[in-house]
């Protein structure tokens, strides 16, 4: 794990609202899904109520390939939260379907994470009711 959690502290759970609920419900079932316009089929992330291309309010949820590449990254040298131990790396993953997602990597050293690295989604089970979508290097 590149993020070591301090289990005695609160772990920063996502704040979920009705626009994003389906995304997080899927994550709890170990699925990564993205919003898809119910009319023109455009994929989008983060979840929003309207399609910016055709203005449709019809929403579907499409399973992601879960595969992508590291688009950018940063290493936190000091933790911004008592539940997370520094240093840890935050990554911006560009998925094969073209959407980007902020996440963390698992099973890799901070210094070994590189832009362009191929990755795939895994689900980090933090508590009984909290999974987070994270990524591991694909060889």
């Amino acid at each position: 794990m590149t993020v070591n959690y301090n289990k005695n502290e609160m772990i920063p759970a996502p704040v979920v609202d009705p626009d994003s609920k389906a995304f997080w419900d899927a994550v709890q079932n170990q699925e990564l899904v993205f919003q898809k316009c119910g009319d023109c089929g455009r994929l989008r992330h983060p979840p929003r109520p309207v399609c910016p291309k055709c203005r449709s309010l019809n929403i579907e949820w499409e399973p992601s390939s879960g595969k992508g590449t590291i688009y950018s990254k940063t290493i936190y040298r000091k933790s911004p939260h008592p539940g997370m131990k520094a240093p840890f790396t935050v990554v911006l993953v560009e998925l094969d379907e073209g959407l980007k997602l902020i996440s963390n990597m698992v099973d890799i050293k901070n210094d070994d994470i590189k832009i362009g690295m191929q990755v795939e989604v895994v689900f980090d089970n933090l508590t009984d009711d909290l999974n987070l979508p994270k990524f591991r290097k694909v060889d």
């Binding site: 979920v16 983060p46 911004p80 963390n104």
Partner: peptide, 13 residues
Amino acid sequence: LLHWAFHSPFGLM
């Protein structure tokens, strides 16, 4: 909300 939903759970705070 974007921040608290999609960034802070991964430590991007």
